[in-house]
Design a binder for these strands. Structure first.
Lengths: 120, 120
DNA sequence: CAGATATCAGGTTGACTGACATTC
DNA sequence: CGAATGTCAGTCCACCTGATATCT
C-alpha cells in the first residue's frame, strides 16, 4: 500500500488532476500525452474520475472526435488532498538531506530529466 | 518495451540472477527477502529460470522444506548479457552529467536510500 | 505447539497492443 | 485519402492476499 492508496487514490488520478489544474481543460489524448498515459487507459481513468465527480466529460463541438475534460471544484479539493500526501512523502524522503543537498539533488535530477526528454 | 524486454528478460530475472551470483545458492524464501520479491511470485520465477537453464532447483537435504537454487554457467552468461543492458542504460541516463556530478548524485541518493532503510 | 517454507489460486494496478468506428 | 480520437478487448509484468501441505 503506497501513500496514494492509503487515501484511496492513485498516481494516475493525481497526474491527470494536476495537469488539468495546471493547463486547463483538455482532450483525453492531450491529457495522455501530457501525463505519459496511453489513450486506451485514459478512457477508464476518466470514467472513474467523472464517476467520482472530480472531472466533467463533454463533447467538443468544434472537433466532434474529442471529449473535453474539465476539472470540477470537487476535483480541485481532491487534488489538494493528494498534493498534501505528495508533500508529506517528499518531506519524509528528503529528510536525511540538508537544504543545500536538496538543492543540489534537484539540480542533478533536473539535468538528467531534461536530457532524457531531449534525446528520446 | 523497456531495455530488459528488448532482450527477452525481466527485472525479476535480473535481480534473482544477480543475487545468486553475488551471494551464492539460496532458498527461494532467502532470495525473495534479498530481492524484495514475494515468496508466491518466486515460485513461477524460479520455474521460468530453471526451464531456461539459468538456475537449478534442488531439494535441501538438511531442511526438507527448502529448495536450494543455484545459478548455472548458462545463468552467468545470461547475467552478463543483462548486466551489459543495465550498464548501457545507466550510461545513457547519466550521459548529461560529468564524473564529478555523478559521484555527487550517487552520494545524495545513497544517503536517501540508507535513511529509508533505517526508518522503515 | 508455533514458525518457516513452498505452492496454488486469485485479484489489482500500470503499461502496452491491436482492432474498430467516427471525425477531421 | 491519411491522420487523429475515443473506445474496447486482451496481454503482460509487478505486486499483493489468502489458503494449504509440509517440514523444523
Amino acid at each position: 500500500m503506497d501513500a496514494f492508496t492509503s487515501v484511496g487514490g492513485r498516481r494516475y488520478q493525481y497526474s491527470v488532476l494536476a495537469a488539468l489544474d495546471e493547463s486547463g481543460p483538455a482532450s483525453q489524448a492531450q491529457l495522455g500525452r501530457r501525463c505519459g498515459i496511453d489513450r486506451s487507459d485514459m478512457v477508464a481513468l476518466v470514467n472513474e474520475l467523472s464517476a467520482q465527480g472530480f472531472v466533467q466529460r463533454a463533447m467538443d463541438q468544434d472537433d466532434r472526435r474529442r471529449n473535453v475534460i474539465t476539472i470540477t471544484g470537487k476535483g480541485r479539493e481532491r487534488l489538494s488532498e493528494l498534493d498534501a500526501v505528495v508533500t508529506e512523502v517528499q518531506e519524509r524522503l528528503l529528510d536525511p538531506l540538508p537544504d543545500s543537498d536538496r538543492t543540489e539533488l534537484v539540480r542533478l535530477l533536473t539535468r538528467v530529466l531534461e536530457h532524457q526528454s531531449v534525446t528520446s
